[in-house]
Design a protein around this nucleic acid. Structure first.
Lengths: 162, 162
DNA sequence: TAAATCTGGTTTTAAAATGCAACCCTATTA
DNA sequence: TAATAGGGTTGCATTTTAAAACCAGATTTA
């Protein structure tokens, strides 16, 4: 059967994954952030099948993560550019990159070193922070009751994370 | 043909997506962060097919995002608990949630309000920050040359993000 | 000017992934 | 003793995916 989709899910993570939660979309967005804009460039950089790339690009355009812009007077040339919504995926992509570098470092390769354009200094690890900017772990947060998360009367496990 | 996998990709985002980049894995991790630990609980909360849940749980265990723990003296009962590696996905999950809430808010629902257990105050928006903790956008960062990102001599688009 | 190339796709085909339902086995509870 | 809960596995039909071939308009190149 078909993949399940979550367009109308009450969970915003599910709705987000619906738009960028497949194997390729976030990689397309990542390369767009590195400056790639053209169909052929995406195709060659990612090594993605052309039909899949087609599908992903148009889906990202439908979801307003990218916009398709006609460029050049000669012939039909297009560019796929990030929208504000797309650029807003930045923390997610960077957090994924940092997680990958930390837990699955490439054997013979330095992790990618991203730097602040202004100061030239390495950026921070992306983290969840409290109102004052102090880092928080899973255990430090809670959801006020009446949140809409469907929970069963749990079986017999104690409710501590980890 | 088969889905493409990126186990050995030089891109850490690709390697990360290889472990948690499918339609269900991050949702499983999310619910684990909310406290879910049991097979049936995941199954009912997520509405996922049992065989797929099986597959995802064992893959997450293989990748050391979850650990499978035998509990209870009576019968074979298991719990799936987050490892440190799994808990380290916290910023990614939260960033996804915030992105979903911002750009695809649920029609009749308040966005989920996560709070610091200690102060009771709402947590911050997850962001990329420079060394001093100031927020950075895509346009504020750069990759030092010689980074291993495969780039073509770009066609004729100007290299500005967005 | 004809041939080759670039760009951005669509089509075809076969292998996987997905979802559903049914089944299995061990314990526990009614 | 029967029913139910937990944690799966199996079979099957439907989708998705990847690879490669094909296409069509514009533009170089020979």
């Amino acid at each position: 059967m078909a993949r399940k989709r979550f367009d109308d899910s009450s969970c915003s993570v599910a709705r987000a994954l619906n738009e960028v939660g497949d194997w390729w979309s976030l990689l397309v967005v990542l390369h767009a952030m590195y400056g790639t804009r053209r169909f052929v460039d995406f195709q060659q950089e990612l090594g993605i099948a052309r039909n899949i790339l087609c599908d992903r690009l148009s889906r990202l355009v439908d979801n307003e993560v990218l916009k398709k812009v006609e460029v050049g007077e000669h012939g039909s040339r297009f560019e796929y550019r990030l929208t504000e919504k797309g650029r807003d995926l930045f923390p997610i992509v960077i957090a994924l990159r940092q997680w990958g570098d930390k837990w699955n470092p490439a054997p013979n390769q330095e992790p990618l070193d991203l730097r602040d354009r202004e100061t030239g200094r390495t950026i921070r690890q992306v983290e969840v922070q409290d109102a004052n900017g102090n880092p928080l772990t899973v255990r430090d947060v809670f959801v006020p009751e009446g949140d809409g998360i469907s929970r069963r009367k749990t079986t017999d496990s104690k409710k501590t994370v980890g």
